[in-house]
Simulated assay, not measured.
Amino acid sequence: MTIDEIIDFVAALDGVLTLTPTAADPWPEISWGDSFFYYSPDGVVPTKTQPFATIVTKDYPDEPSSRLDRPNAFRVNIAAGKEAFINWTGHEPKQTATTEIDYSVTDTLIPHPTYGIAGWLAVVNPGTRTDAPTQELLQTAYDRARSRYERRAESDDR
């Protein structure tokens, strides 16, 4: 999957706000060129929630390297949740940034280098092995984000 294919897939889900900052935007420079996906049916960037998925095109400071400095390299990060994390990794979410994991491996679902502890999964350059699982996990993350939003809206109505 390409970055554009992933963005198109996620953006087609109802109520998704896709944020892809550029130099012309007020967002931090480190975020320029990356994409952030929120469940936000009103189209406003939420202030009290994290995105349910991201696409990053560069390694972030203080994270183990995914070697995103390679040509056309990017990483999809997905807030898959504990159940999906266990299904894909075989263990509970935990501090995962270790030397035992090659965070630069491509077309392989791995724990997120920083947010694995929170049930996030990642894949560098999804390809034939991970295209379908990546879409399924993005759908799962979207469903979870939408459900959280709806629960908050219900509690605000009370």
Rank of each mutant, 00 (worst) to 15 (best):
I55G: 00
P111L: 07
A118M: 09
E136G: 10
D34S: 13
G33Q: 00
L68F: 04
P46T: 04
Y142R: 00
N87E: 13
T22A: 09
D4M: 03
D107F: 00
A23G: 13
A118Y: 08
A11N: 13
A118F: 09
P26A: 08
D59M: 08
I117A: 07
I30N: 04
D157R: 12
S66F: 11
E83V: 15
P113L: 08
D102M: 08
A53M: 02
E83H: 10
P111D: 10
F37M: 02
K48C: 11
G33L: 01
F36M: 11
D62G: 08
S147Y: 08
V124L: 03
L109A: 06
T47I: 10
Y39Q: 02
H112Y: 07
E63D: 14
T49Y: 09
L13R: 09
A153W: 06
A97D: 15
R148P: 04
W27R: 05
T20E: 11
R152C: 12
A24Q: 11
V10K: 00
H112I: 03
A141F: 01
V56M: 07
A80K: 04
G43N: 13
Q95D: 13
Y149G: 05
R146M: 09
G15Q: 09
G116N: 08
G90M: 13
K82M: 06
R151W: 11
K58E: 14
D131I: 12
A132K: 15
T47G: 14
Y115L: 11
A97W: 04
T54R: 05
E92S: 06
T20Q: 11
R75V: 06
P126Q: 02
V123K: 01
G81I: 06
I86H: 12
G81K: 02
D59I: 07
E29K: 05
G116M: 07
D14I: 05
T22M: 05
Q95L: 14
E100D: 15
R152V: 09
A80Q: 02
T49I: 11
T106Y: 01
T18L: 03
S35T: 15
N72R: 15
G116Q: 08
N72P: 03
P113H: 04
A23E: 15
D131N: 12
S104E: 07
D156Y: 14
A153D: 12
Q50Y: 12
A132W: 05
P64E: 10
T89H: 08
D102T: 09
E63Y: 15
I6W: 00
E5G: 08
E29W: 01
R146G: 06
D42A: 14
D102P: 04
D102Y: 02
L109D: 04
N77Q: 08
P64I: 05
V45Q: 12
T134S: 13
P61R: 09
P26V: 07
L109P: 09
I3F: 03
T18K: 07
A53H: 02
P111K: 02
T89R: 13
M1E: 02
T140D: 12
K94Q: 14
Q95S: 14
S35G: 10
N125M: 05
D4G: 06
T2E: 10
L19I: 14
D143M: 07
T128N: 10
T114K: 07
T96D: 15
R70W: 08
G33N: 01
